[in-house]
Design a protein around this nucleic acid. Sequence first.
RNA 1: GUGCCUAUGGUGUAGUGGUAGCACAGUUCCCUGUGGAGGAAUUAGCUCGAGUUCAAAUCUCGAUAGGCACC
Length: 387
Amino acid sequence: MKEFGFKIEKKIPGRLGRAGVITTPHGEIKTPAFVTVGTKATVKALTPEMVNSLGAQVVLANTYHLYLQPGDDLVAKAGGLHKFMNWQGPMMTDSGGFQVFSLGAAFGEGGVSKFAKEGVQKIEELAKEDDVTVKLAKIDEDGVTFKSHIDGSLHRFTPERSMQIQHNLGADIIFAFDECTSPSADYDYQKQAMERTHRWAKRSLDEHKKIKAGEQALFGIVQGGRHQDLREESARVIGGMDFDGFGIGGSFDKEDMGTAVGWVSAILPENKPRHLLGIGEPEDILEGIKNGADTFDCVTPTRMARNGTLMVKGGRLNILNAQYREDFTPIEEGCGCYTCQHYTRAYLAHLFRAKEMLAGTLASVHNLYFLIHLTEQIRQDILEGRM
RNA sequence: GUGCCUAUGGUGUAGUGGUAGCACAGUUCCCUGUGGAGGAAUUAGCUCGAGUUCAAAUCUCGAUAGGCACC
């Protein structure tokens, strides 16, 4: 079985970005690469064969969801995630840390996302003092207590627990347990949370080494919100630990997410891969790559696909708009995806209106192909000196 | 032919005297480590006419159109 590794093939002159290859026990990931999200050990609406044939190299599943259902022990009994879900390529698992945010500070706040926006400045108090009876998650120094969104039962994650669960799941790349803070949290909270995430990183690493099963690589996660000094401090602390690679998490300002990624990339060890967590708008991917991120995962392409929004070169296309009902052209002229090769906008519009399951499937194929190939194109541009 | 019943947005319905509500469809928007094959906004209506009343989708009469029953 191959060891985990990362090799830089070519750098963007004068920038932090690069093209490279990550080696995992289940194959290579040519970077920059978009990581397809398969939260519950399935890329929604697609079979692994489809995921593979549209060009995906790697799939990310989620610790929180699989721990709750069907349980990490069961996945271990099944022989691990790869076998269980029939995905033979590289896999990642999220640490469950993001749910600390989505079940905690962001719970019930429809307008709150990782990105700072106008008019959502009211929840920092709740983030500090949230009660598991109100929100679904409560954070303390040792870990997080949360309620299952499935049946309301009470559970607890700690860095050690997250490592144990992720080892049971058996992905090639796993992440340290962290806290993704709300963009509306103030500086003091960001700092406290970041420092706690650093302590959790150390504990994650210790537990990971103690378990020492298989060939799993562990990535530490840099936090620090939108503040340059915190981001840089986090990069120094996390970058100084013995991780196999790094995740860049948390919240950003929409306008200069790239800048924030740059602060961090400049400090993290150059010879280890950097994963930008949860980022997936085409422009953000480009900015992330320029600023040193190697891999990206995001629910956007698959979620938007299921809701009728298709990604095209000019932006987005809402296939439910009336103008597409009798449009017998492909989603995008010249697109090489299976959907564009065989179906028209009118057909997709019909499937969505009729609420047919194939709608989500064909749209997911297109959006994933779009984003994966966009990222691949940037890789080629780097390798061939066009960037 | 006679009697009875029914008539509310595109569709299906709620509303028995005082702002016509809901669902679906329609239209548009949103989604960044999936609590999401989800969510939000919005367009559009009392069959027609006369009467009673301060006030009618609502009560009365007539017309029209359906349905049922009987001859």
